[in-house]
Design a protein around this nucleic acid. Sequence first.
DNA 1: CGCGTGTATATTGGATCCAATCTGACCCGG
DNA 2: CCGGGTCAGATTGGATCCAATATACACGCG
Lengths: 221, 221
Amino acid sequence: MSTPFERPPTAQEAVLGALRRMLVRGELRPGLPVRQESLAEQLGVSRVPLREALKVLEGEGLVTYLPRRGYVVTELSAGDLVEVYRLRELLEAEAIAVAVPLLTDADLVALEAAAGEVEDAGSDIEALTTANRRFHFLLFDAARMPRLSRTLRQLWDATDVYRVVYFAEPERRARVRDDHAGLVAALRRGDIEAAVAAQAAHRAHSVTTVTAALSRSAAGA
Amino acid sequence: MSTPFERPPTAQEAVLGALRRMLVRGELRPGLPVRQESLAEQLGVSRVPLREALKVLEGEGLVTYLPRRGYVVTELSAGDLVEVYRLRELLEAEAIAVAVPLLTDADLVALEAAAGEVEDAGSDIEALTTANRRFHFLLFDAARMPRLSRTLRQLWDATDVYRVVYFAEPERRARVRDDHAGLVAALRRGDIEAAVAAQAAHRAHSVTTVTAALSRSAAGA
DNA sequence: CGCGTGTATATTGGATCCAATCTGACCCGG
DNA sequence: CCGGGTCAGATTGGATCCAATATACACGCG
């Protein structure tokens, strides 16, 4: 109803989305080389659009390119994860600080609607992550700093793999909702400090749980 | 003598470098569409490696991609410039704060050598910008935060176009050398605050002069 | 028995070719 | 005179094909 047709018009974009999903689902496992021929066949396209999509992922650090040797799925260590979250901390604080004074009533309504979508998503992880993302970037984009939004998007993309782990637990989903409600309340009051703090707490919680999950799975290996 | 052969082994990388130079030199002017056929012919390659290089530039925001319509050279406004510098401010401060305690003697020697290269570059703008970049990233990389380095690299790439303007004036080149010397001194003392401040002053000076140059040229149009 | 070498195979990089779509001009009707 | 529609050229997107390089394995030599 909202967007009747939003299908990727080009194969490279479709492939890009497919690759992201495969990364999140672990179908493309870190450390393994990307075999272009078989992967392209599996996706029903030729290698050309696949390679263009891989170049985008390379820019985000999700895959590593070695000339004449191809692409390898990047292995993200716990350290990398911590690093990304630290960068997010710095940049999201900036985005929120700039955005809050600029927020219109329409923005706030949209944010509440987005928060509602997160609630409605229930336990559908796919819907949950996209709704969550929409909520946060509605806020970040309100800062009207396109380059900042772009950079944050790259950082979020780089850790999408882990975000799924996070949402798997029902208790965390509940917490996310509370956090969102608190954040919106702070935004309504125009309270920058509280908003930044809310986002920080939200993020900190996710980094600790995800890191824990990661080290647990690493211990198993 | 240092690197006997560092030529890009693949055409896409060569093209990427060529495109960056063309952007810096203004041969690819903002707002204009990128005609793949003629540009590829001009570079002596086919459109395939060209398109891969363009995807990289798209990730950095230097070109904008419109499906089925191709790539357009992004127009950077003064606002965009300010935004990039603000992001650099946040991220470079972090990089320096983390790097300073980790600096080894070897790092410091390398930094001084790099600073020397900047001096030796004289008025060769090309050599100057690359040496300047090497100097700063030697420091940033010392923080051992690869994702942060990557992000900073993207931000620097995005404004390379303007950096050239900056270095055109001899007085500014002199100032750069002084700034570098001051920065190295602070690093030697392990004085994080002073180092961050030095970098900030360095950057602030460049953003003001470049913005001025930009508005002057905009006034002419 | 270990190691370097040579060759066969797998895989990537790039060029060319074709299909799909966009742009712009021209024409026609209102 | 203006707006919509149609058709030709231009341009992009993607598939296929070929060349160049890397990898793996077998072989022969020390």
